[in-house]
Design a protein around this nucleic acid. Structure first.
Lengths: 262, 262
DNA sequence: CGTACACTTGAACGAAATCAAGGACCGTGG
DNA sequence: CCACGGTCCTTGATTTCGTTCAAGTGTACG
């Protein structure tokens, strides 16, 4: 479909080494003791959202370790052995898979509260590269410890299963989007969904700041960056959006929503 | 993308009533006592595959209830409250979602050993309609009982999480397929993947019998049925496949595999 | 034996990719 | 401070792949 490699913003190869340096550096910093789940601003939007105080403290202990990842650095690599899953604490990530010819394809964007690495559990290795789109921080959750705790805390088990299931639902929606919708529907849905996710995190619901490039959006939506650009321009001309670089204003959310109907 | 409704083989509306009649009818039949997991031919290809004898018997008890679904009848409906998940025991199912204009889109095909309904757990309702492509049988697994047992049997918890994770992986692959690949790659991958799944079930690896129509394949792959037909014809002309209606022979699996490379 | 449905194939059309060029923004260094 | 190079973004012209439309063939089943 792409005759030439689709060049994304940053070179994965150089990111890898960059990421490793950062990882080592950040692990030298002792985790802040104040960073407990009870004091975290995500709270209900996160995996342990439904736990009671004692259980929450226990979960907090297994998610104690934090890791800072600088913009364009790599959190984990496709093929690496999976012992941890990660919860985004702040910032944004993308996950990327690479064709055997080296063409990258973005499979997801992750915001605060999202779990990364779930897709790799079944095979014991990460299925994708995870790269930070801005300076970000994650909670490191040892999978075996999580499964242990889930055995003894039914509420956590349910919540973990729920998160896994919702990831499946999200993927199925993406599947429908990629299989059935035209370019305008895809872009409209993408913006709506991003706005909703930010809104749930407490941001304004009628404006959003994209942390990804047009190329990255295009890759995720199975389009070319030119097409994404054209669609955004068209929606702007129609008065549905206001556009100032990465700042997108939802001037008419109803019409945007309808543009994404299927 | 489709200006006209994509007509699938059978009318979902008529299937629904048909399905309900069947459901009531089949529930009148007492479950066969001989149908235990220990005696099931799927064994290692199924959820309880790694359990030891005592645990297997316990699992067998919560998956005791079977249900027969006749060709084109409906197992469950999108939006219905989800209390059970289903394991395909024999036969084939498709899951279907319908656009607000009534256009159907097939989101998955399910073979023996596959779990259906996982995508609905997060929201407590099924996300899709599940329809049998041939006369089929499923094991009914009460979700609450499954989660209960998973709490006390770590091996089952791991296996359940593994199955959920693998579903995520599978969806991500489909996402890549729909987002990046051209028609030939999609069809080639589809056939390869189906052949592999049948092979794991003990069928010949170089031949396969499609239980779905070209329309259904097309819907799943985000193509038109004409395109699917043309691609299959092209692969036949090249000597990669032999085609006799729904019987597909994999004359040159290596080349078929390469045709699906990305 | 005839009707219905699934499948195949051809021809015309269209949506999005590709190719190509120009412009805006950013950090850097003179 | 401004010039410079590098990204990123936008827009236009052309091409391409797959859809749509249309017709015809084959197969299953009453």
């Amino acid at each position: 479909m792409f005759a030439e490699p689709l060049m994304l913003a940053r070179d994965p190869a150089s990111d890898a080494s960059d990421g490793n340096l950062l990882r080592n550096a950040s692990q030298g910093i002792p985790p802040a003791l104040s960073a407990t789940c009870a004091s975290c601003s995500l709270r209900s939007g996160c995996l342990p959202g439904n736990l009671r105080d004692a259980e929450l403290a226990a979960f907090s202990a297994i998610a104690r370790l934090k890791r800072k990842i600088r913009r364009s650095a790599q959190l984990f690599c496709a093929g690496d052995a999976l012992t941890n899953v990660y919860i985004v604490r702040s910032g944004t990530f993308k996950t990327v898979t690479v064709s055997h010819e080296g063409r990258p394809k973005i499979t997801g964007f992750y915001l605060p509260g999202d779990l990364m690495g779930l897709d790799g559990i079944g095979y014991g290795t990460y299925a994708f590269d995870a790269i930070a789109l801005e300076n970000s921080e994650v909670c490191v959750v040892h999978l075996a410890q999580l499964e242990n705790m889930a055995s003894s805390v039914p509420e956590l088990l349910k919540e973990f299963v729920r998160v896994l299931s919702i990831e499946i639902t999200r993927d199925h929606r993406l599947t429908t989007l990629l299989g059935c919708m035209d370019a305008e529907q895809r872009v409209a849905r993408f913006l709506m969904s991003l706005a909703e996710r930010y809104h749930r995190l407490g941001y304004a619901s009628n404006a959003l700041l994209l942390h990804m490039t047009r190329d990255e959006i295009a890759s995720y939506l199975g389009l070319s960056s030119e097409t994404v650009s054209r669609i955004i321009s068209r929606l702007r001309r129609r008065g549905v959006l206001t556009v100032d670089q990465r700042r997108i204003g939802l001037a008419d959310p109803d019409r945007l929503s309808r543009a994404g109907d299927w």
